[in-house]
Structures are given as C-alpha cells and as structure tokens.
Amino acid sequence: MLRIGASRIALRSMGAPATRLAPGFLHTSPAVKWTMQFGSLASKRPGAPQLSPMKPIQAAAMRRSITDAQKQAESRYAKEEIKPTPETVSSTSTTNAMSSEARADQPEKKEVDMTAGLKGDLATIRDTFSLSDVPREAYYMGLAGTIPYLATSITTVFCAWETNHSTAGYGYLLDEKNATQLLHLIEPLQIGYGASILSFLGAIHWGLEWAGYGGYQGYKRYAIGVVAPAVAWSTMLMPIEGALITQFLGFVALYYVDVRATVRGWTPSWYRTYRFVLTAIVGASIVLTLIGRGELPDHIPGSADRAKVFQEGSEERLSHDEEARANKQKKKDAAGSDNRAGEEKEDKTR
C-alpha cells in the first residue's frame, strides 16, 4: 500500500485495542461493560453500547454493525415515557449493595413488620379476655363481689405494715395494739366470706341442672354443688393460713371444673372467661393476704397460738375460780363452826 502521510495518520488514529474484538463488535470494552453493568433497564435494551470512549473510526465501524431491528428498538425506547412507580420505593430500595442491585425482573421485597408478632399476641389476649358476651348484670355484680376480698387483703397488708413500722408503740395511723386487734377481726371475715363465695359457685351448677341447660346431667352436675360447700365449710375450722391456702386451691379446682363444664356445653360459652377473671382477682387477694401475714412480727400470735393462749388462760381462770370458791367455802364452814361453838358455850353457861 502507499505509505503516504494520510494513511499513516488514519492507522495511528485507530490504535491497537486493549482486547481483541470479535467480528461484528459483539463485545464491548471493559469501560463500556462497567458503565452498563448497573443500569436497571438499559442493560436489557438491545441498543448500541456507549460510543463516547471509542475513537472516531471505531465508532463509525460500530454504527455500521447495528442492525435495523436494533435501530427500531432503540427508537421505540427513545419515545417510551417513563412512568413513576412510587410503590416500588421503600426505605431499603436505595441501600442495596452495588453488586446486588435490584433488577426489574426480581420480585420486590416486602418490608417486615417487626411488631407483627406483638400485635398478634395482644389481639389474642384481647379476644381471650373479651367479656362482651357476658350479661352486664352478672359482670357488674361479680366484680362487686370481689370487693370484700380485696378490702380484707389490703387491710391485712396495712396492719402488717403498721405493726412493723410502729415507733415506741405507735404507727402512722394505728398503734400496734389497735392494728393487731383489727387484724384479728378481719381474719374470720375473710375466711367466712371466701367460704360463702365458694359455696355459691358450686350452687350455680344446681341451678343449671334444674334449668336443664345443656341437658340433664344428673349426679355428675349435682356433685359439683355438694363438694364445693363441703370444702368451704372445712376451712372454717382451720388456722388462718391453712384456710386461705385451702380456699385458694378450692377456687382454682372449681375453675377447672367450670372450664370442663363449658367445653361440654353444660354452661354458657362466656362462663369460663367470666370465671377466669373473678378467680384471678380472688386468687391475687389470697396471695396478697398471705404475703401480708408473712411480714407480721414474731411477737404477734397467730390463730393457733391465740387459741392456745386462750385455752391456757381459761384453765388458769378456771383453777383460780375453783380455788376462790373452795376458800370461800372454807370460810363459810369456819364461820359456821364458830357459831356452833358459841351456841354450845351459851348452853353450858345456862
């Protein structure tokens, strides 16, 4: 070929490519690949690669290699209007790593609600303890029935606190003597009221049997109303701590029986939830009373110790009364003997 200046300039302008290009320029240079790698849609379009980094002769050759189909597709994409998609934008859509950028063909990742489990648990608890089906009269009267239990339990804790914090025999509101007397007064009140409530809950099954609710069950349902007052009556003869524990176990056992009865259809469907709420209040009151009594000073006698003291005091008073009666009889006998002796002397003098 002719080695003229123009030909040398043309050959120098082409230069040697960094990599060997295949026929048809199907592969682009690394620079072109790098700029196209992270495009969401541009990497999928069958258009011509970017030609700006190429030299003029290489760009001209690349333009000649583009087919008519590619030109039509490129013109179609050029006229395409990009529509906004705000639903695809999230708090993590712009924080993906470069090597794992979201593509158009990948499904969108939904945001995970971290509080979904907690919300589900709260909804379950709300549905479990829903008392919307409970008759309002039974609901209000049942809650009112727990007030005496709560009052006696709080009073027990208050008396225990007063006796422990009394200074020189005087507390903030009551002295130790009055607090102890009040504590001894409310003990039989709480035990007696608990026994009556336990008996009442057992008697409800008798009423359901007479009404034929869920069918007539006979002795099985009558037995519930018999065992409950028997257990309640036995607590009246126990010391205060033993009576409270026995009544607590009685309330829990009767709640289990009521749940089983509700499952079998012997009671209304809302009855087990209603019973759970009331049993929880009564059980908490009993536990509160036991805690208060556990904080009493050692010199405050319990019910068993008071009974022993009363018995010993009664024996002492009885022996004292017998001794006084015997002394009185001796004095009377001595006075009678003196009178007879004086009469005998008068008879002899006559």
Rank of each mutant, 00 (worst) to 15 (best):
D333K: 14
T167R: 15
A123F: 01
L173Q: 11
S99C: 06
A232W: 01
A73V: 05
I125W: 07
A73T: 07
E137Y: 12
T94M: 14
S93P: 03
A335M: 10
R126W: 08
Y271P: 00
M114I: 05
W161S: 14
L150V: 03
E344Q: 13
N327E: 15
N178M: 10
R20I: 09
A22V: 05
M98L: 15
D121E: 11
A304M: 13
K44P: 00
F276K: 10
H299A: 07
R293Q: 15
R275N: 08
R221L: 05
T279Y: 03
L201C: 06
L26F: 06
I300P: 02
A324M: 12
G215A: 09
K33S: 08
Y219R: 11
P84R: 04
I291C: 11
A335G: 04
I281L: 15
Q70K: 13
R3V: 05
K328M: 13
S7M: 09
T156Y: 02
D133T: 09
Y140H: 13
L2W: 15
V287F: 10
L11A: 15
E322C: 02
I57C: 09
T246F: 00
E241V: 07
S75F: 06
G120E: 08
A138E: 13
G194R: 01
G169H: 08
P301M: 01
P46C: 09
Q37H: 12
L2Q: 10
V309W: 11
T67W: 10
A243D: 02
Q247R: 08
L118T: 04
R63F: 06
G207C: 07
P135D: 04
V112L: 09
L318V: 02
A31C: 07
S319I: 05
G202W: 04
R340A: 12
P17K: 02
R64T: 09
L21S: 11
K348E: 14
A60T: 11
S40H: 13
A60D: 09
K33A: 10
W206L: 11
S7P: 00
T235A: 14
L189C: 12
E176A: 09
N327W: 04
P188L: 07
G120T: 02
